[in-house]
Computed example of a mutant assay.
Amino acid sequence: MAYDEALAARIRTLLAEEPGLTEKRMFGGLAFLLGGHMAVAASGRGGLMVRVDPDRTPELVTRPGVERMVMQGREMDGWLRVFGHPEIDDLPDTDLAAWVTEGVDFVKTLPPK
Rank of each mutant, 00 (worst) to 15 (best):
E75D: 05
V100M: 02
P112A: 01
H85Y: 09
A16E: 13
F83K: 07
K24R: 10
A9F: 15
W99H: 04
A6Q: 11
F32S: 03
T94S: 14
L14R: 09
T109P: 00
T57K: 01
L7F: 06
A9P: 05
R56C: 12
G47Q: 03
E18K: 15
G65N: 14
D105K: 05
V100A: 03
T13V: 14
E102C: 03
G103R: 06
Q72R: 08
T62Y: 11
R56Y: 04
F27R: 07
A6V: 09
P111I: 10
W99Q: 00
K113F: 13
T109C: 06
R25Y: 07
L80S: 00
E17F: 11
M26S: 10
E75W: 00
V107F: 07
T94A: 11
T13E: 06
D53I: 13
K113E: 15
L34N: 13
V100R: 02
T22K: 05
E59R: 15
H37R: 00
L7P: 00
M76F: 01
P86Q: 03
D95R: 01
D90W: 13
D105I: 13
P54D: 04
A9H: 04
L110P: 08
D95P: 06
R10F: 04
V61M: 10
V104Q: 09
A39P: 00
L34M: 09
G47W: 03
A31L: 12
Q72T: 14
T109G: 03
G78V: 02
P19R: 15
H85I: 06
L30Y: 13
P86I: 01
T13C: 15
L80K: 01
K108D: 10
E59L: 14
V50Y: 02
F106G: 04
T22F: 10
V50M: 03
D105L: 04
A41V: 07
V40L: 01
M26V: 08
L96T: 00
P86W: 02
M49S: 11
M1H: 11
G36R: 01
M1D: 12
D90F: 04
G20Y: 05
